[in-house]
């Protein structure tokens, strides 16, 4: 579904600095620290992924950036405007899609679009053009007078995204936009995000789907309110700490796991899909050693290859490291 470039020429930003800038941002709810000293810069046009388990502080951060919550300390700017002092200016320059589907169920597709058009101040002359663009982008041309509650999850997400970009905001905040949507709809959705980024929108997106992180230009990993890793997916994978990953397939996975655990040169063993992921210091020395150990244990090895870690490996690895730190 290619989009016409010309329609995207409207995306503009007077701001020459980073699209989103967080400086030592802190948010406390009573004793609970939801966001702990977070500093990030997001460049214009970037797709920035915000990863982390539930309760890591992703949504809180996004809410602060959208002007829905006031930070406890630290500062942040969005499109050059300060979140504490200029929330009204920020709201004109962003599009926000919240975690929960939040359009009006009892309004039709077109009515929802027109409502948000009115709220975002899209002029009457411009609204039909924007409406048609959004309908086309979301693929809802044939359903404009359908009640929103009758749409399936994927359509709803696209409509919600459409409503968030009606006013051509330079910056988009998407809070877990694809939760509860089937894989095909998710892929289509990311396709849209790419196009928006290509057209100059900055996209700030949270997710807990690790495969989605691969689509981002850069990701930040959040855990316990803090950013524990920041970089492009490729950078994060290589910086996984000392260690390489081997994929091992065997007919007796549990036996293999028991045999390999706590052996010299082997950092970690974990079940992954139909095989084991084995983390080692030096693959050159480890591969023959593993073969030997398993042979001694009478376990047949089907394959043993060196692989690049997935984001999930990175994620799990980093969090385990954090937890060890906490325990120590």
């Amino acid at each position: 579904m290619p989009l016409e470039r010309t329609q995207e020429s409207g995306v503009r930003s007077q701001n020459r600095g980073p699209a989103v800038h967080l400086d030592k941002l802190v948010k406390r709810f009573g004793d609970f620290v939801a966001v702990d000293n977070v500093s990030i810069d997001v460049a214009q046009g970037e797709i920035f992924g915000f990863l982390g388990p539930n309760g890591a502080g992703k949504s809180t951060t996004i809410r602060i950036l959208c002007g829905l919550l006031a930070p406890t300390s630290g500062s942040a700017t969005v499109g050059g405007f300060d979140v504490s002092t200029q929330p009204e200016d920020i709201k004109k320059n962003i599009g926000y899609m919240s975690q929960k589907f939040s359009l009006y169920d009892d309004l039709t597709v077109q009515e929802n679009i027109e409502f948000f058009g009115g709220i975002y101040g899209v002029s009457d002359e411009k609204l039909p053009e924007r409406r048609d663009y959004v309908l086309k982008m979301a693929g809802l041309e044939g359903k404009r007078s359908a009640l929103t509650r009758e749409l399936s999850g994927g359509w709803k997400q696209r409509l919600a995204l459409g409503c968030a970009i009606l006013h051509e905001p330079p910056i988009l905040f998407l809070d877990e936009p694809t939760s509860g949507v089937d894989p095909i709809a998710r892929r289509n959705f990311w396709h849209l995000i790419y196009e928006l980024s290509g057209a100059g929108h900055t996209v700030f997106v949270t997710t807990h789907y690790m495969d989605e992180a691969e689509y981002c230009h850069r990701v930040a990993l959040m855990y316990g309110g803090r950013v524990i890793a920041l970089g492009s997916p490729a950078e994060l994978k290589t910086s996984l700490g000392a260690g390489h990953l081997l994929n091992l397939e065997s007919s007796n996975l549990l036996g293999a796991m028991a045999a390999l655990e706590n052996k010299p040169g082997i950092l970690d063993v974990a079940v992954f899909g139909g095989g084991l992921h084995v983390k080692v210091d030096d693959p050159g020395a480890a591969i023959p050693a593993i073969y030997k150990i398993l042979q001694d244990a009478g376990i047949h090895v089907m394959t043993l290859d060196s692989i690049t870690p997935s984001m999930e490996d990175v994620f799990v690895g980093l969090i385990e490291k954090e937890e060890e730190k906490k325990a120590a």
Binding site: R63, C66, G67, L68, E88, K91, K92, I94, Y96, M97, S98, Q99, K100, F101, S102, L103, Y104, D105, F116, I119, Y120, G121, F173
Partner: peptide
């Protein structure tokens, strides 16, 4: 309850 308030508050609507 429906979560639309949050959406509404993120817009320039006062």
């Amino acid at each position: 309850e429906n979560g639309t308030m949050e959406q509404l508050l993120s817009t320039p609507a006062r």
